[in-house]
Every structure is written in C-alpha cells, then in structure tokens.
Design a protein around this nucleic acid. Structure first.
Length: 913
RNA sequence: GGGCCGGUAGAUCAGUGGUAGAUCGCUUCCUUGGCAUGGAAGAGGCCGCGGGUUCAAUUCCCGCCCGGUCCA
C-alpha cells in the first residue's frame, strides 16, 4: 500500500536491504544480510538481558546524551510540558511528546516553539496498569524523548532520510552496533492523522518509533489513500514525529532483568528493604527468574488470564511449580509496581493534579489507592508521602510547580480518607453479613451492588469479609459490567443547539465589529442593521457583549428612526453577533442607535474582573494547584469553582477576601493584549487556560493583578474600579472542588447592608447591642435548654403528685383509673404509664384546643389500641397505639363524658372477659 | 452534571407514626495494698434545618444543608 514510502535513499546508500520477516510477514530493513526475522516481539525474544546493547547509562545521562546529540545537530531543546494536558480538552494526561503540539501546531494554526526541536516529555498512560510490575517492561510513567520537524510547503526542514540517519548516528553515539538494528515498516494511524512509520528494534526491544505524519482526513486536491476503510489525503504540513523510549534505552544499556531495576534501582532497593525483601536484591537465582519472566512476558500480552500462562511457561523453564513461582515473585512484582506508581504520583501531584472523583483527579486517586493497597499487602509501614517525596528528589525538584509540603499533605489526606472508607466499609459489610447469616440466607446481589455503588466497597472485599463472618455469597464474574449496564439506563438527551439552526444564514454575513473590547466603558454606539430574522438583529458593529466565557450577555435598547426595541439576549455564532429583540421590528439597512444597560454592564464587568482577582488571591493563599474548575458571573453575585484538596477554612477565606481587596485598592491597570499562542504559553505557562482553551493562532490575554489568563470577557480598566469584593459563602460542591460565591462593587455593598439588617433585627428582638448578640444568643439557648430540663423535672414531679390523688376503682382486682385531668399531652401519657406499670389500667383525658385521651393498660386483657380508637371516634377524631399504650384525640369536647363512659364500659367488659 | 446511601448521646450505631435506646467513653461511689478487672449510680439528646400530612412526626412526604459513594 505505502510500500514505496519506505524506499529511502539513505537505506540504499548505507546498504540496508528490505526483507520480509519469516515469522510475521512484516517488511523490515537491515544491514545484516543473514537476518530473517524482523526483530520485534513476538518474533524475537529479548536478547539484551544480560547482554547490554549500549554503553551503560542512567536516566539522567541517557536523557542528556539524547538531547545534546540533537542540539548538536541543529535542534532547539524545549522544556518539558506538564503531565496534565491543560492546553487540551480532549485528553487529561500527556500521553506522547506530540501531544504537546496538538492540536494547534499540528493543525498548522500556530507555528511550533522551535523548528526543528528536541524534547524529553514525561508521559503517563494508565491503560496497562495491571501489567505494571508483572511484565518487566510496563510503566505508567515514561519519558518520550523526541525530535520533531514541521515541514511546510514553503520551508522544508528534513524528512525521512535525515530522520533515519540521525537515528543511526544517535544509536552509534551511545555505543550501539547499528548492524544489529532493524527498521520495521509499520504504517501509523491515530487521532485523524496517518503516515508511514518505522519501528526501531535492537536486541529484541523496540526502542523508538519514527512517524512521518503526512496524511489527514481533510480532503485535498491530491489523490487520497484508503486506510482501514477511511480516506486519508496528503497534508500541507508534514511532521516528523519521533518517540524514543528513555527508560527502554536505559534498560537496554544495562541489560538488567527488568526495566524497573534499570530505571530506578535506588527506589527498588529502598522499597525492597521496607517490605523486608532486601535479601532478594543480590540473589542470582531471583535475577535469573525475573529476567526469564521479562523475556517471556516480552513475547505476549499478559493482561487477564494470560498471566497464568506466563507463570506456567516460566515455571517450566526453571522447573518449579507455577504456584511456588507465583509465591516467589508476586511480592517483587508488587514492589516494582509501588516504585512505578510512586514515580507516577510524584509527576501527577508535582504538576498540580488535585485528587478527586472527577477527570484527572480521579486518575490520581486511582493510582494512590492502588499503591496503598499494594503497600499494605507488602506490609510496608512507611508513609506513602515519604516514598513520593523520595521519587520527587530523584527526579529533581526543578520543574515541579507544586510545593512538596502540599504534595505530602495531599497524600496524607488521601491515605487517611482511604483508611476511613475501608474501616467504614468493613463495619457495614460485617453487619450485613451477620444479618444474612442469622437468617441463613445468601447475601443477595442487590446488596453487593448497593455496597459498591453507595459505599465504594469492592465486591472482592465484601466476599472476603462475608466468608470470615461465615455468610454465603455469590459473586458473578461480570459484576462490573452489570453495574455499568444499570447506570447506562439513565442517559439524557442533548438539547438542540440554536447556533446550528442559523449558521447557514449567519455565515453569509461579515464578522461583527466588537466595540465592547475597544470601548468597554462606553454604553452608546451607532450601527447599521445587516439582517433581521426570527427576532434576531445583526448589525455591522456592536457594544453588546454576547453570552460566553461564563459572562452573561448585555441587555439594553436599539433605537431606529421610527421604533425602539429591547435587547434581551445576545449570542455569538462564529464571528457574527446576534441581538435578540422584543417590542418591534427593524429593517435591513436601517441606521440604529444602541444603548447598553449601564448598571448591569458595569456590574458584570466588576464581577468578571473580581473573578480573576479572587482566583489569584486564592492561589496565593492556598497554593500553586489552584485552578478554576468553572465560573458563572452574574450582576448580583458570581461564583468561581476551584480545585482544592480540602475544605477552605473560615480563616483562609478571610485571608483570600482581604488579599483580593488589597489588590483592588492597589488600583492597578488591567492589561489586555492579543498575543501569539505559542509565545504566550511559553511566557505565562498553561495556567493561562483557566476558563477553557480558546481556538486560533492569536489569543486574548488579560492581566489582572498578577493573574494572567486567556479571556474573552469585558473588564474594568483597573482593579480599583471593581470597588470591593465580599465573599458570600464557600460551598463544597464535589470532591476536590470548592465553590466561592461572592459579590463585587455595589452588589457587595447591598449584600453587606443585607447582613447588617439581619444583625440589627436580631439584636432588636433580644434588645441587646449587636456586639453582644453572640453572647446573648448563646446565653438564651443555654437557658432554654436548662429550662426545658426544669420543665421535665417539674412535670415528672407533677405526675408524681397527681398519682397520689388518683382514686382507682377496683374492677376484677385490677386498679382502673378513669379521669379528666387538664394537663399537657406528655404528662397525661406519663401519668397513665405510671398506672399501667403497676398493673393497672388508666384512661385519662385532658382538654385544650382539642380533647386528648390516653389509655395505658397493664393488663393484657385490655387492648388499649382498640379501645382508644372507639373512644376517639366519639370525639370526632382518631387515635391508636399499641395494646399497652394508646393515644388520640378529637375536636368534640362536649362529647367527652360520653366517650369516657363508653371507654369505661369497654374496659370493664374486657376485664370481666 | 446524574444516580444511590447516610445525618439519633463525646464516639460507633440500633430503633419506632404513640413515654428516645444499646455499647464504648465520661463523672462519682464500692471492690483491691496498688493495678488490670469487677459491681453500682449518674451526667450527657432542637433524633441536621425549614415546610407539609396527621389527633399525634425523630419516624411518612417535599425542599434545603452537610457527609459518603458510583457513573459521565
């Protein structure tokens, strides 16, 4: 298909020949005329274990060797990007070096930061989480070293030949024998792009991939290619996208049994010691087994049940039982995984991820809990924070935005949280297991689903505890998919988008001139009507700000020579602004005068500028990880959601508020500029993208009191114009996200006046000065509690006294009291209860707004519940209770004597049987 | 954002449309040479907040607040 793509001049000149692998049938290029196999797994096993193919390098020395090699060959070295892809909204984590330049650079919208460039980009991929530690080669975190060249029609940097040549030369520079290298043809497709690609193999290991991204899904005039049923066409921009696995290069340079021993030997030995496994460190037997294990694992996918196959193979090779082998190496595999995961956490938390139950925060929590589980299994008692800090130090503190003390605090909190979830879970499961055991029933599936769904308890844990408690439980294999099915039932429909309805008509119009940017403090303008349909007016220019960026649209009026209409909504479709009007019509070509509602506009601007100020103040008070998770501006109050790992305390809130108002009082100018995206990113970092990632080559940068963001909203001219910020409340809206609600400007003043009114009216009620309000309220509350107790005591005393005056008649040897006593319901009840406690029967009635009747029976023959309902129905009401105690009432007080008489008769009848 | 579970004594939790409970902890006393322990008595509750239904709500219904959890 793309065969001719691989016929490189360089291959011919260097004497490489194209061969077809005898094992898999793939084409590859080699200098070794006797070679018959492509050199890739599973065709060829690892041969470098025990026989390094490069000069020994550490991570740092290998990285430096690579970057300086490419620098020497005309590339500019670029600093790494964060492992959280904040410049993208389609992925959470940076998964490849090219991800740094997607979508704007690769889409040709923005020029690259340098061309050609070289970078070593830490990447995180959690797809093979289960294999980490077990396969000997999988990592969650790896550095993809790369050199990229971006070729345009006007500027050719270099393409395939030079890329392969540089690869050969680099391999030679680190002591590799290029006659052992094979280049395997491997057409590449991904993310809407495609192109030829070469896998670089040596010693059975793939150490790099050289991708020549040259095809895209967008149709061009050139003929296209059909790849897997999709058409791809040549792109204007052709990109050299290489990826050299730093860790793999280091592994191959050491020839150690696993990649883990090669990449982080200090941590492996630290964690081994903590787990009490240090005796295995220099054990040749273990090294041999682990090497074999990696070799076999290199030939297969070990996810799921395949792991058992791997065990069997390795066990057979060293002649022990698979069970014994499993026991021997499982703890070591866990150590490897712990080491890998802690490195992953150092990057995640160092780059300011806040663990939570959403997005990348969820991924961080997943890794933390997984690590804690394994540490627990290995009986490592060292705090996780210590291990992560060690990793941070090994990686080198520079390049991490987050303070290590915050990282530690986050981990400690997560550790505690996990422990309490487990503890709570254990108690709940024990209780449930016991109750089903006593009922001698199986624990039903519905119960297990509830435990998982509502309490986050893994079904495996339910099973373990249930067995311990002696309960029986059935756990289906497809448990998780059953839960997933249950959730998928409630899918919601997506509302129809207005913009798509009008886009055809609107696209024909010229872009609207946005006066609200240049003259944000003006409120009047003149314009010409370009179109009018469905209540929407489009003009050539406007001061009306449209809905967007969390800022609501302006309102106001449009006046023409013969009519005046109200603007009640403004939207933006593409570059055209549509005003929704009511109360009249406008004609195309008409001249109109527009007036924006001044107070509302100012209030919105103040709130918007205040949002930036608050975000900055929060960052100063709470730490580098503070990022906006959402915001909604209003004219009376606004809110900003920020990512934070714990509740914001009152003290912190006051500090943020004070800081924010200090920034206002400094009255610094708000600077707005249009800047080149790449340059802005390098100058200000990715914290630019707080409110999402805007499209386009140039982005609008707004600087407010030290806060720098890409923002399209309208702002005050200086921070002083905000006036004042008053925080109204802080709310914990979900795990890892705190919402601050606040008011700015006049709205803040109104809010404070409102608060003052509450205080004044409350103090008026108590006739105290505002200053004494808290003390008085607490005194009143305590007195109220004391008095309630007094009342309880007194009513108990009252009941006692009443008891002494009660005259009981004896019916069949049972003391029966039937009496009217005007006491509150509670006393009637305890009085009746006192009688029944001594075996008597008491029917007591009291009158108030309505009649209340209590019947207590100390004799099983008298069923209080039955009798009371009859008594109450005579009173025009209802009543009921237990056989020993019943209450009720009704409105007809004049029928009380009759009701008591009937009650008495029923009691006598019951006692006489 | 959607769903589910929960909020009762200092802690952990029962429970009920009809007099609010248990265990641990706390206080005092007794037992003992002292301690562990054992025994007895006692204090400690706006049954999360607001509204509704009811003769009666901690309990049922609705809204809110708070905590937990699963899924996007």
């Amino acid at each position: 298909m793309l065969e001719e793509e691989y016929q490189l001049e360089y291959f011919k000149k260097q004497g490489l020949t194209r061969k077809v692998c005898k094992s898999c049938g793939s084409a590859f290029w080699t200098r070794d005329s006797s070679r018959e196999i492509c050199g890739d797994a599973p065709c060829e096993p690892y041969t470098f274990i025990g026989n390094p193919v490069f000069k020994t390098h550490t991570l740092d020395s290998m990285r430096e060797a690579y970057l300086s090699f490419f620098e020497k060959h005309g590339h500019t070295r670029i600093e790494r990007y964060p492992v959280v892809a904040r410049w993208r909204d389609d992925i959470y984590l940076t998964i490849a070096s090219i991800a740094d330049f997607q979508p704007f650079v690769t889409g040709g919208v923005v020029p690259p930061p340098a061309n050609p460039l070289t970078i070593s980009q830490p990447c995180i991929r959690l797809n093979d989480l289960d294999s980490v530690g077990k396969s000997g080669r999988h990592l969650t975190t790896f550095e993809m070293m790369a050199h990229h060249a971006f070729n345009t029609p006007s500027e050719e940097i270099y393409w395939k030949d030079r890329t392969v040549e540089l690869c050969d030369q680099f391999i030679a520079s680190i002591g590799g024998d290029i006659t052992r290298v094979t280049y395997k043809e491997h057409p590449w497709i991904g993310g809407g792009n495609a192109g030829p690609s070469l896998e670089v193999l040596i010693g059975g290991l793939e150490i790099a991939t050289l991708v020549f991204m040259s095809l895209g899904r967008q149709k061009t005039s050139s003929p296209g290619y059909d790849l897997n049923g999709e058409m791809y066409y040549p792109m204007k921009l052709r990109i050299v996208d290489t990826g050299y696995g730093l860790e793999r290069l280091v592994w191959a340079s050491k020839g150690s049994p696993t990649i883990y021993d090669a990449v982080f030997p200090e941590m492996v030995s630290n964690v081994m010691s903590s787990a009490g496994l240090s005796h295995m460190l220099d054990n040749k037997e273990y090294a041999k087994i682990l090497g074999l294990n990696a070799k076999f694992a290199g030939l297969m996918d070990i996810s799921g049940t395949n792991l058992f196959q791997l065990r069997k193979k390795v066990a057979a090779a060293i002649d022990v039982s698979p069970e014994k082998l499993d026991k021997m190496i499982t703890p070591i595999e866990k150590v490897y995984a712990v080491v890998d995961h802690t490195r992953c956490l150092a990057y995640m938390l160092g780059d300011c991820i806040v663990p939570s139950n959403v997005r990348e925060g969820y991924l961080a929590r997943l890794v933390i809990r997984r690590t804690l589980r394994m540490m627990n299994e290995l009986k490592i008692h060292e705090p996780l924070a210590d291990l992560v800090e060690q990793q941070t130090k090994i990686i080198g503190m520079t390049g991490f935005e987050q303070d290590i003390s915050v990282v530690r605090e986050i981990i400690d909190r997560e550790t505690e949280k996990y422990a309490s979830t487990l503890e709570r879970g254990t108690r709940i499961v024990q209780k449930i297991a016991k109750s089903y055991k006593t009922k001698s029933q199986r624990v039903p599936l519905s119960e297990i689903i509830t435990l998982y769904d509502s309490h986050g308890i893994q079904p495996e844990m339910v099973r373990d505890i249930a067995i311990k408690e002696g309960a029986v439980i059935d756990l289906p294999d497809n448990f998780y998919s059953m839960v997933a099915d249950m959730h998928s039932e409630s899918k919601k429909e997506v509302a129809e988008d207005k913009t798509s309805k009008y886009s055809g008509r609107v696209n024909a119009l010229p872009p609207t001139k946005k006066l609200y940017y240049e003259q944000s403090s003006d409120i009047e303008f003149e314009a010409i009507v370009l179109d009018f349909f469905d209540g929407y007016v489009v003009t050539d220019q406007t001061l009306f700000y449209p809905d967007g960026g969390g800022q609501p649209a302006d309102t106001g009026t449009l006046v023409s020579s013969d009519s005046m209409v109200r603007v009640d909504g403004v939207i933006k479709i593409g570059e055209v602004i549509l005003h929704h009007i009511t109360g009249g019509v406008l004609r195309r070509g008409e001249r109109v005068k527009g007036m924006v509602d001044e107070e509302r506009r100012w209030s919105l601007m103040r709130h918007h500028t205040a949002t930036h100020i608050l975000l900055h103040a929060a960052k100063e008070v709470l730490g580098a990880h503070i990022h906006q998770a959402g915001a909604q501006k209003g004219s009376e109050s606004s809110r900003i959601d920020i990512r934070h790992f714990k509740h914001i305390t009152m003290e912190e809130l006051r500090k943020i508020e004070t800081e924010a108002n200090r920034m206002i009082m400094a009255s610094q100018p708000v600077e707005v500029s249009i800047e080149d995206r790449t340059k802005a990113e390098q100058k200000y970092g990715f914290s630019l993208y707080q409110g999402g990632v805007p499209p386009g080559r140039d982005i609008r940068i707004v600087k407010v009191a030290g806060d720098i963001e890409a923002c399209a909203g309208t702002h005050c001219r200086n921070t002083g114009e905000v006036g004042v910020i008053k925080i109204i409340r802080v709310e914990h809206i979900q795990d890892g996200i705190e919402r601050i609600e606040f008011a700015a400007g006049l709205a803040a003043i109104f809010y404070m006046q409102h608060l003052e009114n509450i205080v004044i009216s409350s103090s008026d009620i108590l006739s105290v000065q505002s200053e004494n309000l808290p003390a008085s309220v607490s005194r009143f509350f305590n007195e109220w509690k004391e008095q309630r107790k007094d009342i309880d005591r007194m009513s108990a005393r009252l009941v006692e006294l009443e008891m002494q005056t009660l005259v009981a008649e004896s019916i069949g040897g049972i003391a029966v009291v039937i009496k009217r006593i005007d006491l509150p319901a509670k006393e009637l009840t305890s009085l009746a209860a006192s009688v029944s406690e001594t075996g008597g029967v008491a029917l007591i009635a009291g009158t108030g707004d309505t009649v209340r009747v209590v019947l207590a029976s100390g004799d099983s023959r008298v069923n209080a519940g039955e009798i009371i309902s009859q008594v109450c129905s005579l009173l025009g009401g209802k009543g009921g209770g237990k056989p020993s105690m019943a209450q009720g009432g009704g409105p007809d007080a004049d029928k009380l004597d009759l009701a008591l008489k009937v009650g008495r008769e029923r009691i006598i009848a019951a006692l006489h049987g």
